[in-house]
Design a protein around this nucleic acid. Structure first.
Lengths: 332, 332
DNA sequence: GTGAAAGCGCTAACAC
DNA sequence: GTGTTAGCGCTTTCAC
């Protein structure tokens, strides 16, 4: 049978107030009653009903984590970091995957806003998140993660430094002498993609290499998508000598296609991937990647959410730097 | 300002009951009042407080998904399948990762049991889950996923057929003529490992190959762990001619180590991996894997949870069959 | 130190 | 067709 605090109180011959106080340590209760109450609690294995507690306290100690592309290895890492941190801090995490579906995203936020959650960590879809302003204006704690959206005001953000990522990756390729550098990306109109391309452009500019937007190709964020993107890009631009690929699955697909085309890496075409997938080192040749720390981003996002919950004025933008892991595919 | 149903009722000159009925469609309300109410609701962008609703209805429309090793690609796939299905069915998912920590698992289940969740999908740790019986006896809906634990009664289960996985993988290697087949695994005392090894033994028996338990090696479920396990196994058993590796990251580590040892795959040592990782096809040689469908397992687990919620007597064990993806590493 | 009781925001039985 | 109201299980103010 399901026990309530009332039942416990009755059996211990005290009031519910007293029971509540010993459970939460909110007031000093005589040792005698305390012992008696704990005994009854243990006897029935009683656990207070969180729903009732939540209603009363207007807080659920759970946060929403809304991502838009799962399972992508980067996103998975973020989820891991956030979940771990949440747990450490006594929170639970509601995981929602919107699959880049913006109207589902809105719906979800509305739902979670209705008290199910103390705050939300959101990796927005590509459709823009300015509708969030009605929530943030209301001081509902939201933090933007991974993807930035400048149109949302009054939110803290945790992202990787995608501009620097694009800049460093491109510079590295440029230093190896490659000038015709293609880019393959998956999701348009998100800061991760846009900023990396900005960095790419600026690196080209610095090296006086003209920018050509037909060197940029979009594809699906899958192995097959990467293969197809390479094919269509190389078909159009035959003298591309290096590739910067913004997604790990696509990198794998790209390598597959390049080998199929009997092109040699890096001799005929050099390769720079994004995100450090496990097999990067045993592929022939080992693939050079530029990485952003997904787990740290997730963990930090949760910390930032907590800051925002405790201080509505907290609106920092934390940007984590990239790391270049050089192996052979870039010509190193 | 935060609106309540009472506020809406007052502004629309009706009772809260009427508001509730138009929101939930639980009774027929005159079109006139209905319109008025909807208008007020929209005006304030009102959303009913779920906590209050949950308390009243004794149901939260959220389920707990407790996994013990995240982010492992198999687990990630399961999470994806379950989350997707939950969403389709109007449920939310609370994701918890116990990191193989059994006492944290217990704690979590206690917590979630206290009304935060309508049921739980659990991939138990290796420490045994018989303590669950106190919950399942109470008809709290729990489904075991991925890892089976026969000591838990009155639960439905969704797993891969791990016995068949071990049997088929081993048989395939045997048919290629390999007799000295090593096994590398990560987690001891879980059905996934134990049953695959059972299948391995039975396959050996069928081919009249003696079983030798020093052919079995444990390691960490990481790239490095796989490398080390291969090293120590090959050090001990020099005439091993094939390897069955139960975890994808370990497979990658193993390949790395084998190449480092200047051994050729499959000539010197054949390889059978588990789980179809993206790069399997572009590694040299492409690696043969036996796979169980993580996404289907996750999706099915959620369906089964729903069945269990609706029918406390539902206790089926659904076992999904493996698929062999033959490439080159096995000698094919 | 302890208890009575109000009230969090909703649903649903019941009355009209 | 609509309103009144009890009550879900807890926390917390206020008396004592």
């Amino acid at each position: 049978m399901k026990m309530t605090m009332k039942d416990i109180a009755k059996e211990a011959n005290v009031s519910t107030a007293t029971v509540s106080h010993v459970i939460n340590g909110t007031k000093h209760i005589s040792e005698e009653k305390q012992n008696k109450i704990m005994e009854v609690i243990r006897k029935y294995n009683y656990i207070p009903n969180s729903t009732a507690k939540n209603l009363r306290k207007q807080s659920t100690k759970t946060a929403g984590l809304i991502v838009s592309s799962f399972p992508d290895s980067f996103v998975t890492g973020m989820v891991y970091g956030a979940e771990k941190r949440a747990r450490e801090m006594g929170y639970n995490l509601l995981l929602i995957n919107t699959n880049e579906n913006s109207s589902y995203e809105k719906e979800t936020i509305n739902l979670l806003h209705a008290q199910m959650v103390d705050g939300i960590i959101l990796a927005p879809t590509s459709s823009g998140a300015s509708y969030l302003n009605s929530f943030t204006d209301d001081n509902f704690p939201i933090v933007l993660v991974n993807r930035d959206d400048p149109s949302v005001k009054n939110v803290p953000k945790v992202t990787g430094d995608n501009y620097q990522t694009g800049f460093d990756a491109t510079t590295h390729l440029l230093k190896h002498g490659y000038k015709k550098i293609g880019i393959i990306y998956a999701v348009a109109n998100v800061s991760t993609t846009v900023n990396r391309i900005e960095g790419y452009k600026d690196a080209l500019k610095k090296y006086h290499v003209p920018f050509d937007d037909s060197f940029i190709e979009q594809g699906h964020a899958t192995v097959e998508g990467g293969a197809e993107a390479v094919k269509s890009l190389l078909n159009r631009e035959k003298d591309i000598s290096a590739l910067f690929i913004l997604n790990d699955l696509m990198t794998i697909g790209a390598i597959s296609k390049i080998k199929e085309l009997s092109l040699r890496i890096p001799k005929d075409i050099a390769l720079m991937g994004f995100g450090d997938f496990a097999s990067a080192n045993i592929i022939d040749p080992p693939v050079t990647n530029i990485v952003l720390p997904p787990e740290t981003i997730g963990k930090t996002a949760f910390d930032v959410l907590l800051s925002k919950i405790n201080n509505p004025e907290y609106n920092k933008h934390i940007e984590l730097p990239p790391t270049l892991i050089t192996r052979k595919s870039c010509g190193c």
